[in-house]
Amino acid sequence: MSGWLTEPVPRGRVAAFRTLVYLFVVADLLFFTPWVRDKANIPGELYQPLFVGRLLPLPTPTPLLVTVLFWALLLLSLAAATGRAPRLLGWAVFALYFEWMVVAMSYGKVDHDRFGFLVALAVLPTVGRARHGDPTRSEAAGWALRVTQIAVVCTYFLAAWAKLRFGGPEWMTGSVLARAIIRRGTELADLIAQVPYLLIAAQIGIVAFELLSPLVFVVPARWRSAVVAFFYSFHLVTIATITISFAPHLVAMTSFLPLERLRPLARLRRLTRQAGGTGGGVQEAAGPVPTEPSGAPSPAVP
């Protein structure tokens, strides 16, 4: 079991994953959860902190606290995405984003698509330095990615458990998807809803998929990419029908992918060199500047 948890992976993979995670924090602040800043204007008596907020305890959000959280998290995440000071910046980003999520989810609604992403932020600082494209295999990198993968799968499995625990088997034959389509459905969802019993079949399929998601760890390696692709296709359909994105969960799920093959900076440098080489080739093809017998350049023709 310990060997499976710490199966070595290339350091370049965790370096790419780390950059992606920290850049998503920036995107989350600016595009996905900018509404968290509005919590600063809500009266403090409406703040009902999550259990962890009561346990620590964490402060009641104020305009100053939320503003400091936003800017500190934005700047430190950009710095952490470069890979510098991975432990110091990593722990700082995790602590600040954790508090950001407590503020976001302490007013009556808790999103479960943040679990795997929060785990990724918690384990990435343990890896230490990792360079993009580095093929050196590391058990620390393998452990960080494996723990994130487990959190991703737990998000699915525990979601099914919650459905059956609180909704019972009737959840699968109820009107859950129908209500979601009425609230936030797309034109595609409207077409699907017209097919008799298709929504019931979809609800049964969702629960089956979530309960069987741990199989991703036991299928042969050659099939694992196909299983992860199915995970992504599930969320693609979800976005296309009821406009729920699960964006942080999708980022955490890239821990299953061979991200070390993605080296955008190296590709950009190669393109730049090729562009420079092409320019030189054009000049050579044009030929040398003609000269007079004395060796001086020919005068320009008006």
Rank of each mutant, 00 (worst) to 15 (best):
A92T: 15
G205I: 10
A141E: 10
Y156L: 10
S175T: 14
I206F: 12
G205V: 10
P196I: 07
A144L: 00
V152H: 04
E99A: 11
A178Q: 14
L199D: 06
A178E: 15
R165T: 14
G128D: 08
I204H: 14
A144C: 02
C154G: 07
Y107D: 07
G174L: 01
R146V: 05
V110E: 01
R137L: 14
G128A: 01
P125K: 00
T136W: 02
M101T: 12
H112C: 01
V93T: 13
F209I: 03
C154N: 12
V147G: 03
I182H: 14
W171Q: 11
G116R: 05
D111F: 15
A193W: 04
P169I: 13
V207Q: 08
L198E: 08
A189N: 06
P135E: 11
L188E: 09
A104P: 01
Y197I: 02
G174T: 00
T148H: 07
T136Q: 12
D190T: 11
V119R: 01
G167H: 11
L89I: 00
D134Y: 09
S175R: 13
F117W: 01
I206P: 00
E139W: 10
P125V: 01
A122V: 03
A130P: 03
V147F: 01
I192S: 09
L96W: 03
R129M: 09
G133H: 01
R114K: 11
G108F: 08
Y97Q: 06
